[in-house]
Structures are given as structure tokens and as C-alpha cells.
Simulated assay, not measured.
Amino acid sequence: MGGLKEALVIDREELKDVKHLPSADEIKELAEVAFNHTLAFCNENKHALSNLLSSNGDMQFYQMIIEVANNEFDARVPYLFGDINIKEANVKSSLPFSFIKTLYINTSVNLLMLWGAAPDSLSINEIKSIAGLIQTKSPVELIQIYKSYLN
């Protein structure tokens, strides 16, 4: 867990160079650098992570990963979306911020779990590209992108 946290902190440093709120396309491009160390760490430890996160793995480890991801999401929000008053947003919005956060985190963690289950199926660069897409595209848009590759 310590190595994962360190990699996330190093990757988050890349976001400090962005001096404006990035557009969705810029966020997608930032995935190329904002996950470098994290994905390299996951790749180096893919067998252990795969075992711990498998259906026969350690549920407590999974919960620890979710907690780390929650903390990292909170740390990155100001760089990517500006200051959001989460309590106020949850009160005024019909789409609570906590739902958005949970969807984002679970999608990201599940991407790593899928990759871990078949670690040689995709390269780190392909995973970065997918990470950028899942951060910025709706499921409907992702299906359209997928269908365009089939044609």
C-alpha cells in the first residue's frame, strides 16, 4: 500500500503544472502522465495485486484500495475541476457528488482489477488511454467509440 500511495503522490505532482481547469479532452490527455508511476507500480506488482484483488483474494485489501482511491480522488478534484463545495453540491443537486465519486473510483479500480486478471492483454499505454477515456466519456460514448473500432 505504501508503494501505491507514493506512486499516486508522484503522479499527482504532474497536475500541479496545469495552471487552468482542464477540459475533458485535456483530462483525457493528462491520464498519460497522471498515472505513469501508479500504473508502473501496478505492473511491477501485477501478480500480487491480481491475487489479492481476485474473487479468492483479500476483501480487506480491496477496501484499503478503495480508501486510497477515495483519498486520491479528493486530492485531485481541485486540479481537475476546481473547488467544489461537496456538502452544498449534495444538498442542491439531484445527482449527489458522492454518487459521481463512487462511480469514478469503482470504474478506475475495476479497470485495474480487469487488467490484473489478464495482465498481458493490454500494455501500460493502452491502460492509460482507457483510463483517460473512462474519466471523460459516458458509457454511451464508450460504446460508440468501441463500435467505431469494429467498423
Rank of each mutant, 00 (worst) to 15 (best):
residue 5 K to T: 10
residue 6 E to F: 11
residue 7 A to E: 09
residue 8 L to R: 11
residue 9 V to Q: 09
residue 9 V to H: 09
residue 13 E to P: 00
residue 17 D to T: 09
residue 18 V to L: 10
residue 19 K to N: 10
residue 19 K to D: 14
residue 19 K to V: 07
residue 25 D to R: 12
residue 30 L to W: 03
residue 30 L to E: 03
residue 34 A to K: 05
residue 35 F to C: 04
residue 37 H to S: 05
residue 38 T to S: 08
residue 38 T to M: 05
residue 39 L to D: 00
residue 39 L to I: 01
residue 41 F to L: 01
residue 48 A to G: 04
residue 52 L to V: 02
residue 55 S to R: 11
residue 55 S to P: 03
residue 55 S to L: 13
residue 61 F to Q: 05
residue 61 F to N: 06
residue 68 V to T: 15
residue 68 V to Q: 14
residue 69 A to N: 13
residue 71 N to Q: 15
residue 73 F to G: 03
residue 77 V to N: 03
residue 79 Y to T: 00
residue 80 L to T: 00
residue 87 K to L: 10
residue 87 K to D: 13
residue 88 E to S: 15
residue 92 K to E: 11
residue 93 S to M: 12
residue 95 L to W: 14
residue 97 F to L: 11
residue 98 S to F: 11
residue 100 I to N: 05
residue 100 I to R: 10
residue 102 T to R: 12
residue 103 L to T: 07
residue 105 I to C: 09
residue 108 S to P: 01
residue 109 V to D: 10
residue 111 L to F: 10
residue 113 M to F: 02
residue 113 M to P: 02
residue 114 L to N: 09
residue 118 A to P: 01
residue 123 S to Q: 07
residue 123 S to G: 08
residue 127 I to M: 06
residue 128 K to R: 11
residue 130 I to S: 06
residue 132 G to M: 08
residue 133 L to I: 08
residue 139 P to I: 07
residue 140 V to H: 14
residue 144 Q to Y: 12
residue 144 Q to I: 05
residue 145 I to R: 12
residue 146 Y to W: 14
residue 149 Y to N: 13
residue 150 L to N: 10
